[in-house]
């Protein structure tokens, strides 16, 4: 197994800058660990935008179908009852519930997809470089691969951005 290099930083700006520098030196960035969602780090790490948007849309669409056809089937097919002379298929009156079902499906569907995908589940202990990740430290985890010959070693790049290497 290849050795992982871990660098520690004190603020987000140093982290983002050194991610850019390290990537320029063709060192592979495995992951970063941060106490909050750092703005602009996704671009620096070149992360793809999420597919969760499409999942959310799909769940919402299923919700729309369930909401509209469910109410239609219940009110017009399975047991039609004349209530206040409204038509059996009272589409305008079905809209509020259909809307709520869309939101419910889309919201819960997205969140549980995220949990499943990212394997976040009840009680799993966190694996992290240090307990200070969730407090005030930023970590950068890199993989020592084929670094470009001309550039400085990783530790020097990190040092140049006010970071320090941490023992693995």
């Amino acid at each position: 197994m290849e050795k992982l290099l871990i660098a520690e930083f004190q603020n987000e700006y140093d982290l983002v800058d050194s991610v850019k520098a390290v990537r320029a030196a063709e060192v592979e960035v495995v992951d970063a660990y941060t106490p909050y969602a750092v703005h602009g780090l996704d671009k620096a790490m070149d992360l793809k935008s999420s597919r969760l948007t499409r999942i959310c849309f799909t769940f919402g669409f299923i919700g729309l179908l369930v909401g509209v056809f469910g109410q239609y089937w219940v009110s017009a097919v399975n047991w039609p009852i004349n209530i206040g002379g409204r038509p059996w298929n009272s589409l305008p009156a079905f809209m509020p519930v259909a809307f709520e079902v869309i939101i419910l499906f889309a919201g819960l569907g997205t969140v549980f997809s995220f949990f499943a995908w990212r394997r976040l589940k009840y009680g799993k202990p966190g694996l992290q470089p240090s307990l200070r990740v969730t407090n005030d430290r930023f970590y950068l985890v890199m993989k020592q691969g084929q670094q470009r010959k001309s550039s400085a070693p990783v530790s020097e790049i990190v040092m140049a951005h006010h970071g320090k290497m941490v023992e693995n």
Partner: peptide, 10 residues
């Protein structure tokens, strides 16, 4: 839920 601050998860 085992949150570890990984930026990929963030």
């Amino acid at each position: 839920l085992g949150w570890n601050g990984s930026y990929r998860v963030w």
